[in-house]
């Protein structure tokens, strides 16, 4: 049953404590509102589940921007937009997959408003940037008035279709991306939508594949639009370990591992058969291209 936008309530606190105090209130939950790029679509389609909205735009001071920790961890503030992220030179150098996907979110207007934290909390199985964060081993920092701060690995953050571990008194305050052990060349992602831009992913992959001496020594493979949430595919990750990428039966091994782990659906955007076939091919492409990149990087290194 849909209500009317004029009946909705919004509050715009200007410090974090006030925001957390509102979230801790009993009664109708407050829904945090950052870029609004998902929320306004829900409103337009009459699908808003909430009646109270916590406008975070007054918290730029505490939740905006990017910071680098001494250990090389990237801290992305909850109000950091895709545009701010992709414009940062160090992010471009160290997390190229993150920048590449940030450039494919919606269009320029969406990238200027949408936030990484919002992309995580929206918990769409077709998310663009959140799966890359999962492949890179990111953590989510939550804060509440009563419980203080806690950090949750993205692996554990989504609990089901559009479900997260966030309590209704909690707010995402930052996303933490650790330094990458295999550098930029191990990162690989690809989004397959029906058109070039402004597309919703019908099948996608985000991966980190570490190579040493021509063998895969680490694989984090994230499937997009293949399950209720973006998810790592442990069976494929294990199947890839130790591989050289030259195995003649590699495609079959990936397919077998995938079959046991993923059950994609037929829906309005694509078919289960297409998703299953193309995802297997994307894994293989990720293996080949990260291997090539690792090799080129190695050569570059020896030449230097």
């Amino acid at each position: 049953m849909s209500g009317m936008i004029s009946q909705l309530q919004a509050s715009r606190p200007t410090d974090l404590d006030a925001a957390l105090a509102l979230l801790a209130e009993a009664g109708d939950p407050w829904r945090p509102l950052a870029g609004g790029t998902d929320l306004l679509v829900e409103a337009q389609h009459g699908r808003l589940q909430h009646r109270r909205f916590l406008d975070l735009s007054g918290l730029q001071g505490s939740l905006g921007g990017l910071r680098w920790h001494a250990d090389g961890t990237l801290e992305v503030g909850a109000l950091c937009t895709y545009l701010q992220l992709q414009r940062d030179a160090r992010v471009q150098a160290e997390y190229p997959a993150l920048c590449a996907m940030a450039r494919l979110v919606g269009a320029a207007q969406i990238q200027a408003r949408g936030t990484l934290a919002g992309n995580i909390e929206n918990a769409s199985p077709a998310a663009d940037v959140a799966p890359v964060l999962l492949a890179l081993g990111a953590r989510v920092r939550l804060q509440s008035a009563a419980r203080g701060v806690r950090e949750v690995a993205l692996d554990d953050y989504w609990t089901g279709y559009r479900q997260t571990v966030r309590g209704q008194d909690e707010l995402i305050v930052a996303v933490l991306v650790p330094p990458q052990p295999f550098g930029p060349h191990a990162q690989w992602s690809r989004k397959v939508g029906t058109r070039s831009w402004q597309a919703i992913t019908k099948v996608g992959i985000a991966a980190r594949i570490g190579w040493a001496e021509g063998r895969i020594v680490e694989a984090r493979i994230v499937a997009v639009s293949m399950a209720a949430t973006p998810c790592r595919v442990a069976a494929i990750e294990q199947a890839l370990l130790g591989c050289s990428g030259e195995e003649p039966d590699l495609a079959a091994r990936i397919a077998t591992a995938q079959q046991s782990a993923l059950r994609p659906l037929d829906d309005v955007r694509s078919t289960a058969a297409y998703r299953a076939t193309v995802f297997g091919r994307l894994v293989l492409q990720a293996v080949c291209e990260t291997k090539g990149a690792a090799g080129d990087a190695g050569k570059g290194g020896s030449a230097a």
Binding site: V41, H45, T194, R195, S196, W197, Q198, A199, I200, V268, R269
Partner: peptide
Amino acid sequence: NMTNYVVPTAAD
């Protein structure tokens, strides 16, 4: 809806 009925954009 314009989300799932996919018309070309300038990029196509």
